[in-house]
């Protein structure tokens, strides 16, 4: 008989993730199981609850599959948060590979009752403003900036801005009214909320440096649901998860970037490219976040220093591999 997996996620069906990641994945497991297993999609939180509750829902078996951001639940996944520190990750693909290895090595205990099928990060995040350009560090003074995660909230504070917390759905409106002066986001999400139409300036850090910030994602399955599957269906899931899937999803995020960026270029928005020296200044101004993260982990009796080093080494390794290929 047919196995139906309830797949709950945050995006409306037309968004990039359901179109390029979730839909294809579901088609693939249906095909490879000879239609003995299929997804029942619950887009845009139509299964009830809030985005931060998704991690508990998949753990408790309310939902069978979810894609969500661990960063929605501040303080819950302190280890995986390492990839949200500033100036860590250079591309989504490299970040995805490193975060999968890091998860395997250090963070499995952060997800009890949950089978993690993939982990990744989004493409590099940048600074976008509506009326005041950010040419240098000092320009952040007095700017109200929307931050998507706990770490970016701290980051913006260190850079001198006033962070404002709000859901991404409110950004366009807040921007048009001047409730905020700008926001940090990766290019990928910008078209979905037409934010390029609300922004005039885009400040991009030096490409030789790692990204200003990224946020992590997880693709998770309820463990009990997985355990209840017959061996051959388990195998279908196994074949469609892990390092390979993570890397592939990271790549999808990277690939969506030029198209989204082009929309802003075509509108004639102003692009500000920071020099390596100026980017250095930003990195220095926010460097203490790494120490804060280490201290945070040590307070929980975890070896924060080693883990940070491990994450950085993994990122360096995959960056090296990526460069070698080119």
């Amino acid at each position: 008989q047919e196995v139906v997996l309830k797949f709950h996620h945050i995006w409306p069906t037309a968004a990039m993730a359901p179109q390029k990641v979730i839909g294809p994945w579901c088609d693939k497991i249906a095909a490879e199981s000879n239609n003995r297993m299929r997804c029942q999609l619950l887009p845009a939180m139509s299964g009830g609850g809030t985005p931060p509750q998704l991690v508990d829902r998949v753990k408790d078996g309310v939902d069978d599959l979810v894609v969500t951001l661990p960063g929605y639940t501040a303080g819950r996944f302190p280890k995986m948060e390492v990839f949200e520190l500033p100036f860590m990750v250079s591309s989504a693909e490299q970040g995805a590979q490193a975060s999968w290895d890091f998860y395997q090595k250090h963070a499995k205990d952060e997800f009890p009752g949950t089978k993690i099928l993939a982990t990744w990060v989004h493409d590099p995040g940048f600074v976008h403003t509506s009326s005041k350009p950010v040419n240098k560090l000092e320009d952040f003074r007095g700017l109200k900036m929307r931050a998507p995660t706990r770490q970016t909230n701290k980051l913006l504070g260190k850079l001198g801005a006033t962070p404002v917390g709000m859901p991404v759905t409110g950004v366009a409106d807040a921007l048009s009214k001047g409730t905020i002066d700008g926001y940090v986001l990766p290019w990928e999400v910008i078209p979905a909320f037409k934010l390029h139409e609300m922004s005039k300036y885009h400040t991009e850090t030096d490409p030789g440096h790692p990204a200003l910030y990224t946020a992590g994602f997880i693709f998770a399955m309820n463990q009990a649901k997985y355990d209840s599957l017959p061996a051959d269906l388990k195998k279908v899931i196994d074949n469609n998860s892990g390092a390979q899937l993570s890397r592939q999803i990271g790549k999808v995020w990277d690939e969506s970037r030029p198209m989204a960026r082009k929309l802003a270029v075509d509108r004639g928005n102003n692009f500000i490219q920071l020099s390596p020296a100026e980017t250095d200044r930003w990195q220095k101004a926010s460097a203490s976040l790494n120490e804060e993260w280490v201290k945070d982990l040590e307070r929980r009796n975890l070896p924060g220093k080693e883990m940070l080093k491990d994450a950085q080494d993994l990122l360096a390794k995959y960056k090296g591999e990526g460069n070698a290929k080119k």
């Binding site: 609850g49 809030t50 509750q53 829902r57 309310v62």
Partner: peptide, 13 residues
């Protein structure tokens, strides 16, 4: 179980 677990978050949501 799914119903009871769903209800854990529905009022807050």
């Amino acid at each position: 179980d799914p119903l009871l677990n769903l209800l854990k978050g529905s009022a807050v949501a």
